[in-house]
Amino acid sequence: MDAARRIAVLGAGSWGTALAIVLAQNGHPVALWARDAGLAARSAADRVNARYLPDCPFPEGLDITADLPAACRAAEQIWLALPTKSLAPFLETQARHWSPNALIVNAAKGFEPGTGRFISQLVADHCPAAGFAVISGPTFAHEVATGKPSAITVASADLASAEVVAATLRNARLRTYPTADVVGVELAGGLKNVLAIAAGVADGFGFGANARAALITRGLAELMRLGAALGAQASTFMGLAGVGDLVLTCTDDQSRNRRFGLKLAQGYRTEEAVAAIGQAVEGIGATAEGARLAARFGVDMPIVHAVHQVLYDGVPAREAVSLLLAREPRHHED
């Protein structure tokens, strides 16, 4: 195990809680911050986050609190597990209070609403002296928290920082793989949720396994085209952060974005589907930013465009997905 490091995990949803559990099991003192003071108090008393992971008790070394300054005080690593739509204002008000030597680790997937900026860019704006890493990969929170075998990619422009974070998280059941391709990992992590919505819609209409496989394959091609335009490494999209996370999110109903697509196929409106799921659906905002990035870089992304039509242009889901699946490729696997 790596040397013990004082860690703050900000965000006590299912993913933040799962990460805090693993990090504490690895021997690191962890402060898990919850925005909801009531949730923090109940979880501290019961030693479990009953709202999100009711069968995953807290290990020794994990404390939960609603006191943000206390959670971040003397933290060597600050892990961000908050909805991406709230990260920019959160960083603007809070980051100035953090140690300039802290290593910031982004565990969220998505982009800044309205700009399409990556979370790495937001952190650089508000914590210019801090190190930065991002984690991504095929990892459902409950499976990670319960110790099922999993693997994850850790990216940082400073490969030494990626190695530090990878060692902090790694154990016998969770494998970690460092890389320097921050852009590729962030792009794949954000846009795979859009493709999962499309897969959920297609499955909800009973289009079958063939259609799902076609969407995944063509969706991967879209990710790689945009990645190439942004300077990402092609190998990233063929690894855990790319095809690994894409397959997981598009095929398993633990995925909130896939379940959201299923709800759309059942006739739910966007707000109704989100309410039924009861947690953030990152793919909704990522759809708008993915379309924005595609237009900015002149990249053809028909699946992202189809999901955007459904969520933002009022096109019926069946019509959008049917037209997409009937689309003639302009070249191999377009």
Rank of each mutant, 00 (worst) to 15 (best):
L246W: 10
T17A: 00
H28M: 05
L262D: 08
G244A: 12
I152F: 07
I277Q: 07
P100E: 14
A198S: 13
N26F: 00
L323N: 12
G219F: 02
G61V: 09
A3L: 13
T270F: 00
G208K: 09
Y177F: 12
L323F: 08
A107V: 05
G38W: 04
P29L: 05
G208D: 10
I284P: 03
V321Q: 02
C127P: 00
V134W: 03
E92D: 13
R96I: 15
N106E: 10
S150I: 03
A275Y: 05
G206K: 02
D203S: 15
Q266I: 05
A34N: 00
L80Q: 01
C127M: 05
R173I: 01
I78P: 00
T236K: 07
L223M: 14
F297Y: 15
P316F: 13
G116Y: 12
V194Q: 02
L122N: 04
G114N: 06
G114P: 09
E112C: 07
E289C: 02
H28P: 03
F58K: 01
G200L: 11
D253V: 12
A12W: 00
A75D: 04
D300G: 09
Q254A: 10
V134Q: 10
S43Y: 08
S86V: 15
V154F: 08
V321M: 14
A20H: 01
D55Q: 15
R51H: 05
D313W: 04
Y52V: 01
S86M: 10
L91I: 05
A286H: 01
A31S: 13
L62K: 03
A265Q: 15
A50L: 10
L82P: 02
A34W: 00
R5M: 15
V144A: 12
A12L: 00
D2I: 15
E271V: 05
A326F: 06
S136K: 11
H142A: 14
N101T: 14
A71Q: 01
D334Y: 09
F140V: 09
G131H: 03
G16W: 00
L226F: 02
A229T: 09
P113N: 08
V247L: 10
A273T: 13
Q121F: 08
T287D: 08
F140Y: 13
Q309C: 13
R51L: 08
L174S: 02
A188P: 10
T115Y: 08
A196G: 11
L87F: 01
G189W: 06
A317S: 14
A50Y: 01
I284M: 07
A160Y: 09
G116M: 14
W79Y: 12
Q266T: 06
V144K: 05
T65M: 00
A155E: 08
Q254F: 05
P316I: 12
G114V: 09
L311G: 07
V22F: 11
E282T: 11
C127R: 10
F111A: 05
A162R: 12
E272Y: 11
G314W: 10
E289S: 11
E222A: 09
V182A: 03
D36W: 00
P54V: 14
E272G: 11
S161K: 15
I64Q: 02
A295S: 15
M224I: 11
L311W: 06
E333L: 12
